[in-house]
Amino acid sequence: MAKAHVYNRDHINTDEIIPARYLNTDDEAELARHCLEDLDKDFISKVSEGDVIVAGEDFGCGSSREHAVWAIRGAKVQTVIAKSFARIFYRNAINCGFYLIESAEALEKIKDGDEVEINYKAGVIRNKTTGIDINFKALPDFALEIIEDGGLLEHIVKGM
């Protein structure tokens, strides 16, 4: 069961996703323990494997730290659904093979704690709590290729 953790906020930045005081490590499990700590210190005790984060515009703005993606992935979150993403965070996620969903409607149609199911191929988020379907546009082909290979480096190695 994938539960939605909804943060009705724009500009959730990399310092909130993983504060710089924890950047002295790149251990994913350790980063995960501090995921979203300065935004919601209870997040890590609430989140379960496969859950999703839902947020507003410009998610991931700020630093280039890929640690932000690793902290979220390390917390076993399956995807982030936001109105829009900051550029470097978006690129980092693709490069890590981590899927992101851009959706203008999700924030209105998904409430905190709702159960969701995502069909990435069809581009549909089903809110199982309300029965509402939300369509989204899939990532561009080049990004999908990178994600399908497991990330940018795997993609590069494959082409060598």
Binding site: S64, V69, I88, N92, N95, L152, I156
Partner: peptide
């Protein structure tokens, strides 16, 4: 590998910040 890499554009160069995976790719290739 730092978001403020955009600083160097003050010298008529193209300069941008990247994360660690991009950095690894740039270093190797």
């Amino acid at each position: 590998g730092d978001s403020h890499t955009c600083t160097y554009g003050a010298f008529a160069a193209f300069s941008t910040g990247i994360g660690s995976t991009d950095l690894a790719a740039a270093i190797a290739t």
